[in-house]
Design a protein around this nucleic acid. Sequence first.
DNA 1: CAGGAATACTCAGTGCGCTGACTAACTGCC
DNA 2: GGCAGTTAGTCAGCGCACTGAGTATTCCTG
Lengths: 146, 146
Amino acid sequence: MAAVDLSTHPGHLARRLQQAHYLLWNTMVSEEITSPQFAVLNTLVAEPGLDQRTVGERVGLDRSTIAEVVSRLGRRGLLGKARDPQDGRRFLLDLTEEGVRVHRRLTVRTARMNQVFLAPLSAEEQEQFFALIGRVADAAEKLRAV
Amino acid sequence: MAAVDLSTHPGHLARRLQQAHYLLWNTMVSEEITSPQFAVLNTLVAEPGLDQRTVGERVGLDRSTIAEVVSRLGRRGLLGKARDPQDGRRFLLDLTEEGVRVHRRLTVRTARMNQVFLAPLSAEEQEQFFALIGRVADAAEKLRAV
DNA sequence: CAGGAATACTCAGTGCGCTGACTAACTGCC
DNA sequence: GGCAGTTAGTCAGCGCACTGAGTATTCCTG
């Protein structure tokens, strides 16, 4: 029996965490808009008119994935795409009014969901939670960059 | 600018963590066998002859997803499926010799990868990392069970 | 200013992960 | 024994996420 205990596997833990979040999001925030889609909306509220690649970079999605997410949001009428007149390769993205409205509505629910999600941890532990995961993710992303 | 800082969003953090792990796995462990597939192999080393649903439960995959993962592993000749003679609804799963060999080989590499992945944290911090994520994931899964 | 390198994006292919609807098999109760 | 309810698995459909190949545009360098 050379098997390993999965609970000491960070990858397995990360997957469980993400799935748990996904389910909670579905019940507490929205069944229509997913968490990555919200991240895109959120980025465009902060920086309207950003190009597609940069949006992807902000939310941590590669060019293929961001293209699909953007196209879905476009189909739902939450954002618009336009060629950059300065650089014909780029697409510039902007929220529609509906997109802004949806973002505003979901922001409230997201905050509530995050509270529930992190409720098992004390305020101090929540700090550690963010810091530890952030450090591991940052380090791994840097390994990739090389 | 009603935008939120994504770095304080546990869902976004969880996704980044998982992607970072995915990339490292690809370069350090295997391009063929994925982390969930390894989890299935690992479960069957510990408990040979388990049925498909229970394997899914052990590794945290729903019945649809475990069916796909199992079918892929079957196509690669790493495990075999057989109807349970006691209960015609069930499929019992068993690793082939090749499956056992692959599991043994990947176990070593996985341990090495985990070390690299967690290297930014001290031993004490690694404990916290496991504990905090485990508690949040457990709590969220319990919410679901209700 | 022309040709090669870099950049933004698309498309095809693979894999994980979920829901909801369906089929087949078993279980329990009358 | 028969029928209702539960359970294991499949299938279709959606969405995220990556790689690798291909196209169009821009940038850089000789």
